[in-house]
Measured scan of single mutants.
Amino acid sequence: MKHYEVEILDAKTREKLCFLDKVEPHATIAEIKNLFTKTHPQWYPARQSLRLDPKGKSLKDEDVLQKLPVGTTATLYFRDLGAQISWVTVFLTEYAGPLFIYLLFYFRVPFIYGHKYDFTSSRHTVVHLACICHSFHYIKRLLETLFVHRFSHGTMPLRNIFKNCTYYWGFAAWMAYYINHPLYTPPTYGAQQVKLALAIFVICQLGNFSIHMALRDLRPAGSKTRKIPYPTKNPFTWLFLLVSCPNYTYEVGSWIGFAIMTQCLPVALFSLVGFTQMTIWAKGKHRSYLKEFRDYPPLRMPIIPFLL
């Protein structure tokens, strides 16, 4: 059985960083990364991007050496992705923050609204209902991160945790300040508006959870398998008939419901920014589905049925 020789060059300087002799033909890129780490321990596998061309796409960890368009002496180019952190850690951090930050404003801890309001309670029912909904949303997200989601990528750049936390924590503080303010004004149409908004919120939260469970069942634990998601017997998953990412559709719907319930401008802005970002993600995933699966359902749109 022939063996391969693998040289790894710096993608920027073309400097030879490592030479691997007698590499098995069936070795994966993940195994080559581990061998590279032995000579350069500062670059652990998650930091490494190996590619066939200095400006090309990163090879997948599961790619097999003998199936790549290389000879028995293969040249790979290395790029440092920077310090990495696990997706689970990032999600837990960015979701735990809003949960606790919101509660600080809800309980009106000292130095927020003035001494005479310390630890007082709002007289408006919608304020307490909003706290329950907000807390439920982020507790749900935390539990899904721990027990439901299966991540195709193990890590992301460390800098992302600061960007994500600034976004989630900042908006949580902004909306919580106004919703729990002693001078907060309840919704214009009173109980009817709150009940309608609560119904929207609850339905969308159930829908979002149902989609996450359906997506989880598509991917076996520990794998990166991708399949076309289809509706199940659960009615909340029937939205798969019309959109590629109904989890985002339901998520946006939840925040629209919360915005109607609280009639709070920061919540509306958070919903708008979230919708914009999720639309970008949904379009990317939709394109990926179309590219990977020739039999992908043609009627589906990325996030909004028939429109977007």
Rank of each mutant, 00 (worst) to 15 (best):
E292P: 01
C18K: 01
R159I: 15
L103A: 08
L65Q: 06
C133R: 02
K33W: 13
I228G: 14
L9E: 12
H115M: 08
L218I: 12
I101M: 14
E62Q: 05
Y44I: 01
S254L: 04
C165F: 11
V194P: 15
L59Q: 05
I132A: 13
N208K: 08
F100Q: 03
D10Y: 04
S223K: 06
V202L: 09
L290W: 12
A199P: 11
F119E: 03
V90A: 11
G222W: 09
R216Q: 09
Y44H: 09
L59H: 15
R79I: 13
H134P: 04
N180A: 07
C245G: 11
F136K: 00
D53Y: 07
E31P: 01
V88L: 09
F293S: 11
Q84M: 05
L290G: 03
F105T: 13
D295S: 00
K57T: 10
S223F: 05
K16T: 13
K163G: 05
A191W: 00
L103T: 13
C165R: 03
R150S: 05
D118P: 04
H153I: 02
G56K: 04
T145N: 00
F100P: 12
Y250Q: 15
A197P: 11
L308V: 12
T13M: 11
L158V: 06
D295C: 14
G257C: 08
K2M: 05
H26L: 12
A30S: 08
L129F: 11
K163R: 09
P298V: 04
S58L: 05
H128L: 05
T249D: 14
R123H: 00
H153N: 03
G222F: 13
K2W: 05
H181Y: 06
T232N: 08
L265R: 04
R150P: 01
T93E: 02
L146C: 14
L242W: 11
T185P: 08
G207L: 03
E15A: 05
L196P: 10
R216W: 07
K140D: 15
A221S: 12
N34Q: 13
T13P: 07
L142E: 15
L50R: 04
A30W: 13
A30T: 10
F270L: 07
H3Q: 04
L272R: 03
A176R: 02
F201I: 14
W281M: 13
G56S: 09
L20D: 05
T249A: 10
A259E: 14
A96K: 13
K22G: 05
M278L: 11
F107N: 15
C131A: 10
E144D: 06
V23S: 01
R300D: 00
A172D: 09
L104G: 12
H3R: 12
S121Y: 04
H212A: 02
E7Q: 12
Q48A: 12
T73M: 10
K60P: 05
H212E: 14
R14C: 02
Y167D: 04
R294Q: 08
M213A: 09
L218R: 13
V88F: 12
L239Q: 05
Y250D: 13
L20V: 10
F78G: 00
V23F: 10
L218S: 11
T237S: 07
F119G: 01
K163T: 07
F240P: 14
L206T: 06
T73I: 05
P235A: 04
W87Y: 05
T28I: 10
K2A: 07
K33S: 01
N164D: 06
Q192W: 15
A30I: 02
L242I: 04
V127A: 09
P187V: 14
L20K: 02
R159P: 06
W87V: 03
L17Q: 13
H134F: 07
P69H: 04
L35S: 13
P45G: 08
K60W: 15
Y296I: 08
D63N: 13
T166G: 09
N164T: 01
N160H: 14
E24G: 09
E31A: 11
H128P: 04
C18S: 08
P98S: 10
R51K: 00
Y106D: 03
V88P: 14
P246H: 03
E7S: 02
L92T: 12
F36R: 01
G154L: 05
A83F: 03
K67I: 13
P157H: 02
F270T: 05
L35E: 06
T13I: 11
E31C: 13
F147L: 10
L299H: 01
P25S: 08
D61P: 12
N164W: 04
R150F: 05
E7H: 01
M301E: 01
G274S: 09
A259G: 13
D80E: 02
I179A: 10
L20S: 12
K55G: 05
G154Q: 08
I211L: 03
S152L: 06
C131S: 07
I200A: 08
A282D: 03
V127K: 01
Y250P: 15
V64L: 13
K60F: 02
Y138H: 05
A74P: 00
F209H: 03
G274C: 08
E94W: 01
F105Y: 15
L52P: 07
C18H: 13
D63R: 13
P25T: 03
K285C: 03
I211D: 15
L146I: 12
E24K: 09
E5I: 14
T262V: 09
K22S: 07
A46L: 04
K285R: 10
P54A: 10
L81V: 03
I112L: 03
A27F: 13
V194W: 15
P302C: 06
A176P: 01
K195N: 09
R79V: 01
L9M: 04
L92N: 15
I101D: 12
W43C: 12
C18F: 11
V273E: 11
E62V: 01
A173V: 09
K116Q: 01
L35F: 10
I304H: 02
T166W: 11
S58W: 06
F209D: 01
G207R: 02
F171N: 14
I132M: 06
I304W: 11
L290I: 06
C18R: 10
T232M: 15
N208S: 10
S271H: 14
A74S: 07
P54Y: 15
W43T: 12
R51D: 00
V267N: 11
A173P: 12
G56Y: 07
I211T: 10
T28Y: 08
Y113L: 04
I132K: 13
P41Q: 04
V267K: 00
I260Q: 03
H115Y: 10
Q205M: 15
T89E: 15
P25F: 13
T125V: 05
V88Q: 01
T28A: 10
K140Q: 13
G222M: 15
Q193H: 12
I8P: 02
